[in-house]
Simulated scan of single mutants.
Amino acid sequence: MPNPLSVQLYTVRDLIAEDRDGVLRRLAELGFDAVEPFQPTVDPVGFRKVADDLGLRVSSAHAMGLIQDEDPSPVFEAIATLGTDLAVVPAGIAEEEFTTLEGLARTADRLNALAEKAKAHGMRLGYHNHWWEFEPVFEGRHALELLADLLAPEVVLEVDTYWAAVGGADAPSVLRNLGDRVAAIHVKDGPVVKGEPNLVVGTGRMPVTEVLAAAPNALRVVEFDACATDILEALGASRAYLAGLADEQGGTSA
């Protein structure tokens, strides 16, 4: 695989609440090389030590505080402590802002200003989508695609390919259109229906092979928003599937 295979820790949020260190150890045992935290300000020093001891890289970090806090500096500092330079806004901008051109312009201004603050901390700013950035279409282009045109060059995207599909987009086509703007992708699978649990990658309706081929250099982050089976088993099976694809394509498995 072109990058270490990461896991968005929101996937195992309930387990982490009970035993963070044990869950990180289990993810390392499953063969994952990296993790993507979603609460970076919660004990970043302790988290970093455990991750380092396990050989887990922090690939990137989600943080609602980036968009919600009046001063995001402590959030950037925590993310730096974790050992990554990719700070991702996971949500927090009103869905209505993606339904008009004026709203997209306001959103771009907001993210561009935040990117300047990120740069001052030696960080890159990313934006992660849900379905509502794709449902609105303007002259054949999804709202997120128009937003990308308005973003400063240093702002990158972490495209959640599953939510893109739920929002009505052809995920591989979107990834190709966005090109190098895409620094990371969330690799997920399922029935592509809102409210239904995700499935092991490779067993749902997502064209996973095409998705990966459309963003060959992007960081891969596996995520489950919900899972009807044992989540660690599902993560292990997803990792095995993706490693198998890499082997078939002549790459190295994660």
Results as ranks from 00 to 15, higher is better:
residue 31 G to A: 07
residue 76 F to G: 10
residue 66 L to P: 07
residue 156 V to P: 03
residue 116 E to T: 14
residue 42 V to P: 01
residue 79 I to D: 05
residue 136 P to L: 09
residue 75 V to P: 15
residue 92 G to T: 00
residue 133 E to C: 08
residue 152 A to H: 13
residue 229 T to A: 06
residue 178 L to V: 11
residue 242 L to I: 01
residue 163 W to Q: 00
residue 142 H to L: 04
residue 203 T to W: 00
residue 219 L to I: 07
residue 238 S to L: 01
residue 142 H to P: 01
residue 47 F to V: 02
residue 118 A to P: 00
residue 15 L to S: 04
residue 189 D to S: 04
residue 120 A to V: 15
residue 206 M to N: 03
residue 66 L to C: 02
residue 182 V to C: 13
residue 77 E to K: 14
residue 154 E to T: 13
residue 128 H to R: 07
residue 20 R to I: 09
residue 194 K to Y: 04
residue 60 S to E: 10
residue 178 L to T: 05
residue 46 G to V: 15
residue 113 A to T: 14
residue 70 E to N: 12
residue 168 G to K: 09
residue 171 A to Y: 14
residue 214 A to M: 12
residue 223 E to S: 00
residue 182 V to A: 09
residue 128 H to Y: 10
residue 185 I to N: 01
residue 50 V to R: 03
residue 226 A to D: 15
residue 240 A to F: 14
residue 212 L to N: 05
residue 210 E to P: 07
residue 19 D to G: 06
residue 138 F to D: 09
residue 98 F to M: 02
residue 209 T to V: 12
residue 186 H to S: 00
residue 117 K to A: 13
residue 231 I to H: 04
residue 41 T to L: 04
residue 186 H to K: 02
residue 193 V to P: 07
residue 123 M to T: 09
residue 213 A to K: 08
residue 187 V to Q: 00
residue 204 G to V: 15
residue 8 Q to D: 04
residue 158 E to D: 13
residue 21 D to I: 06
residue 117 K to Q: 15
residue 55 G to S: 03
residue 80 A to H: 13
residue 161 T to D: 06
residue 55 G to R: 01
residue 57 R to F: 07
residue 225 D to P: 09
residue 24 L to Q: 00
residue 105 A to P: 02
residue 239 R to M: 10
residue 243 A to T: 15
residue 56 L to A: 03
residue 218 A to L: 03
residue 121 H to S: 08
residue 5 L to K: 09
residue 249 Q to R: 13
residue 5 L to F: 13
residue 167 G to R: 02
residue 17 A to Y: 04
residue 236 G to A: 07
residue 133 E to V: 14
residue 248 E to V: 12
residue 240 A to E: 11
residue 109 D to Q: 09
residue 37 P to L: 08
residue 49 K to A: 11
residue 37 P to Q: 03
residue 130 H to N: 08
residue 231 I to A: 01
residue 98 F to N: 02
residue 40 P to A: 00
residue 65 G to A: 01
residue 127 Y to W: 07
residue 70 E to C: 08
residue 236 G to Y: 05
residue 221 V to K: 09
residue 156 V to T: 10
residue 45 V to Q: 03
residue 234 A to F: 04
residue 150 L to F: 13
residue 176 R to E: 12
residue 43 D to R: 00
residue 159 V to W: 11
residue 125 L to F: 11
residue 174 V to I: 15
residue 174 V to Y: 11
residue 213 A to I: 03
residue 160 D to A: 05
residue 16 I to W: 08
residue 38 F to K: 06
residue 93 I to K: 04
residue 224 F to W: 10
residue 62 H to L: 08
residue 11 T to E: 11
